[in-house]
C-alpha cells in the first residue's frame, strides 16, 4: 500500500514552471530515491510534499490529502524533512536543535533523543556545540536527527551526501538503512550521486527538467541505456 501518492504535481516559481505533472508512489516501509541533475526539481519536489511551495495536483499521505494543508500541519501528520542545506539553527547547540524538531512530538522527546544519539553517537558527545561550528557531516547528522525527533512515518532527505567525504556518506547510508530496517521507516531521498542512491533505494525515479523520465528498481535502471550513458558515462 502506498504511504505517499503524488498525482500531476505542478509547481510554479512566478511564471517559471519547476515541476511538470509529476506523479509517483512511495510504498510503506520502502526507500525510494529521486535522482537527477542539479536543477531538475528534486528539492522543489520535497519542498512541495511538506507544503513549502504553491502547488497544484494531488498529494495524499497516509490517506490524508495534503493539497490544502500548510507545512506545520503536514509535519504533525508524520513527515520529517532533512533539507539539502540543513536549515539548522546556527546559534543553538546540537541538543537544542534536536529539541526544536520535537516541537510537535513533545511526549516522545526522551525516546527520540536516545534513538538519535544511538544512531549518531558523535552528536551526544557534542550535544552543546553550536551547529555553526560543526563539520558538514555533523550538520547533516543533526539535520537528520532533527527530522527524526518529530516521530515521522515518512522521512524526506534532500541530497544527504552533498559535499561530504566518502566515509561520512557511508555512515549516512548505514544510518538510513538502519532506520528503514529496524524501525520500518519509509524514506525518500533525492540524490545527484546515482551510485549512492541505487545502492540504498529499492525503487528509483529519474527526474529531469521537472519531469519524471524513468522509474524502476536499481537493477532495472542500471541497465537502462539512457542512465548508463548519461550518469555512468559509459
Amino acid at each position: 500500500m502506498a504511504l505517499l501518492e503524488i498525482t500531476d504535481l505542478e509547481v510554479f516559481y512566478g511564471k517559471a514552471r519547476s515541476l511538470h505533472g509529476v506523479s509517483l508512489e512511495v510504498g510503506a516501509g520502502k526507500i525510494v530515491a529521486i535522482i537527477g541533475p542539479n536543477g531538475a526539481g528534486k528539492s522543489t519536489l520535497l519542498d512541495s510534499i511538506v507544503g513549502l511551495t504553491k502547488r497544484t495536483g494531488r498529494i495524499v499521505f497516509d490517506g490524508t490529502d495534503l493539497s490544502r494543508m500548510r507545512a506545520p500541519q503536514i509535519v504533525s501528520l508524520g513527515i520529517g524533512y532533512a533539507p539539502e542545506r540543513g536549515n539548522l539553527f546556527p546559534f543553538m547547540g546540537v541538543k537544542e536543535n534536536l529539541l526544536v524538531g520535537a516541537y510537535r512530538a513533545r511526549k516522545e522527546i526522551d525516546k527520540n533523543l536516545r534513538m538519535v544519539f544511538d544512531l549518531f553517537p558523535v552528536l551526544e558527545e557534542r550535544r552543546n556545540q553550536e551547529t555553526r561550528t560543526q563539520s558538514g557531516g555533523e550538520r547533516q547528522m543533526v539535520s537528520l536527527g532533527r527530522a527524526l525527533m518529530s516521530s515521522p512515518k515518512l522521512l524526506l532527505v534532500d541530497e544527504p551526501t552533498m559535499g561530504l567525504a566518502p566515509r561520512v556518506c557511508l555512515d549516512i547510508a548505514a544510518a538510513l538503512r538502519d532506520l528503514n530496517a529496524r524501525l520500518g521507516l519509509t524514506i525518500v531521498i533525492t540524490e545527484q550521486n546515482v551510485n549512492f542512491a541505487m545502492n540504498l533505494a529499492q525503487e528509483v525515479y529519474l527526474l529531469e527538467t521537472g519531469r519524471i523520465r524513468l522509474k524502476g528498481t536499481p537493477d532495472e535502471l542500471r541497465h537502462e541505456k539512457y542512465i548508463v550513458e548519461t550518469y555512468f558515462g559509459a
Partner: peptide
Amino acid sequence: SMDPKGATISGID
C-alpha cells in the same frame, strides 16, 4: 529568528 524554513519543517508556524 535563525531559520524560518528550518522552523517550519520542524512543525512551527
